[in-house]
């Protein structure tokens, strides 16, 4: 039954996923052909816009069920409500991985062709990419959790959503995330010193960053799961009007 829910979610988001891929591929191809353009800036702008689009989908993936009253079909099905949440989370995660992954692949392709960002393609780059991906998934899951939780409030749900989103983001990013990260470091999860090489206006630059990749990644995963838990608990309490 979960499989059916998942397929439904993928088909429902199919148009968005299709257009995200088409836009990324089109801009990549355009930059590959137009050498005189400043490719990195343009590409990053488009890529950034698509990441914002993921956040929008994270909110809308539940809102649209209420807007079109399809909640009456979805919640009358004999499935646990957490499976409904999990199916929606999965689609957002896949959307993120696809957008970042495809964007990264195009970036590498452009870099190899020597027409785009002069990042050296190494493990560091991949670490940052994965950490960024996890960060986007976490932010999307905070958006989903605060949206679903806001439906437990009969009135003022929009205000409740905004306040809860800010609160959860602050809580996770400023306090809980570093705390988990430190805890994991103390437990022996190593921090990695990474060298980032990038092209600036003044030439090639090198910077070293202490990057607790694994601890950050694990804590991001833990907090994403916590947001999934919050969404699953909230959706059980949500009233379908």
């Amino acid at each position: 039954m979960f499989k059916t829910l998942l397929i439904k979610e993928f088909k429902g988001e199919g148009e968005w996923i299709k257009w995200m891929c088409i836009i990324l591929l089109a801009i990549g191809l355009l930059l590959r052909l137009k050498m005189e353009w400043h490719p990195s800036l343009l590409f990053i702008l488009v890529w950034g816009a698509l990441i914002l689009l993921i956040f929008y989908r994270a909110i809308d993936i539940f809102v649209k069920e209420w807007r079109h009253k399809t909640t009456h079909l979805l919640f009358s099905l004999p499935v646990p409500r957490w499976e409904i949440v999990l199916a929606k989370f999965t689609v957002i995660v896949v959307m993120t991985v696809l957008t970042i992954g495809l964007g990264a692949a195009i970036e590498v392709w452009l870099a190899v062709a020597d027409k785009a960002i002069d990042f050296r393609f190494n493990m560091t780059h991949i670490y940052w990419m994965v950490a960024g991906m996890a960060q986007i998934v976490l932010t999307s899951s905070i958006l989903i959790a605060s949206k679903v939780t806001s439906y437990t409030v009969y009135r003022f749900r929009k205000l409740f959503f905004v306040v809860l989103f800010i609160l959860l983001s602050y809580l996770v990013h400023r306090w809980l995330l570093p705390f988990t990260s430190d805890l994991l470091s103390q437990m022996g999860v190593p921090k990695v010193k990474v060298l980032i090489t990038y092209q600036s206006n003044t030439g090639l630059r090198h910077e070293t960053v202490d990057f607790g990749f694994w601890s950050s990644f694990i804590s991001l995963t833990i907090w994403t799961l916590a947001m999934f838990g919050l969404s699953s608990i909230s959706i059980k309490k949500v009233e379908v009007e």
């Binding site: 439904k8 088909k11 429902g12 148009e15 079109h68 009253k69 399809t70 909640t71 009456h72 079909l73």
Partner: peptide, 8 residues
């Protein structure tokens, strides 16, 4: 009301 998915 119509509670069916419009895209289906």
């Amino acid at each position: 009301f119509n509670h069916l998915y419009r895209w289906m």
